[in-house]
Amino acid sequence: MELITKHEENASGRDFFVGDIHGQYGLLMQAMARIEFDTSRDRLFSVGDLADRGKASFECLSLAFAPWFYGVRGNHEMLAHAALNEGSGRAWDLWQINGGSWVYLHNVHEVRALLDGALAHLPYARMVEVDGKHIGGVHADPPQNWESLAREDPSADRHALVWGRTRISEMDRTPIAGIDAVVVGHTIVEQPTTLGNVLYIDTGACHSGWLTLIEAREVLAR
Rank of each mutant, 00 (worst) to 15 (best):
Ala33Leu: 13
Asp49Lys: 01
Val72Leu: 14
Ser40Asn: 14
Ile35Cys: 15
Ile35Phe: 07
Arg41Tyr: 11
Gln24Phe: 02
Arg53Asn: 14
Ser62Asp: 10
Gly71Leu: 11
His76Ala: 12
Arg41Asp: 09
Val47Ser: 01
Gly48Asp: 03
Ser62Gln: 11
Met32Trp: 05
Tyr25Met: 06
Ala31Val: 05
Lys55Val: 15
Ala64Val: 09
Leu27Gly: 01
Asp38Val: 09
Leu44Ile: 12
Tyr70Glu: 11
Ser62Leu: 02
Glu36Asp: 05
His76Ile: 09
His76Met: 13
Leu28Met: 14
Ala66Asp: 11
Met32Thr: 02
Phe58Ser: 00
Leu28Ser: 05
Leu50Met: 13
Leu44Met: 10
Tyr25Gly: 00
Ser62Pro: 00
Ala33Val: 13
His76Val: 08
Leu61Asp: 00
Gln30Tyr: 00
Ser40Thr: 15
Pro67Asp: 11
Asp49Cys: 10
Thr39Phe: 12
Ser62Thr: 10
Asp49Ile: 02
Ala33Arg: 15
Thr39Pro: 08
Lys55Met: 14
Arg73Met: 13
Arg34Gln: 15
Gln30Ser: 11
Ala64His: 03
Leu44Ser: 06
Arg41Gly: 08
Lys55Asn: 09
Gly54Asn: 04
Thr39Ile: 11
Ala56Val: 00
Gly74Asp: 07
Arg34Asp: 14
Leu50Tyr: 15
Ser46Asn: 10
Glu59Met: 08
His22Arg: 03
Gly48Ala: 02
Asp52Gly: 05
Leu44Asp: 04
Ala51Ser: 15
Arg41His: 14
Phe65Gln: 12
Ser62Val: 01
Arg73Tyr: 04
Arg43Ile: 03
Ser46Asp: 01
Pro67Trp: 12
Gly23Glu: 00
Phe69Thr: 06
Gly71Pro: 01
Phe69Trp: 12
His76Leu: 13
Leu44Gly: 08
Leu44Cys: 05
Met32Asn: 03
Arg41Glu: 11
Leu28Asn: 06
Asp38Ser: 02
Ala56Gln: 07
Leu28Ile: 12
Arg41Lys: 15
Asp38Ile: 07
Phe45Glu: 07
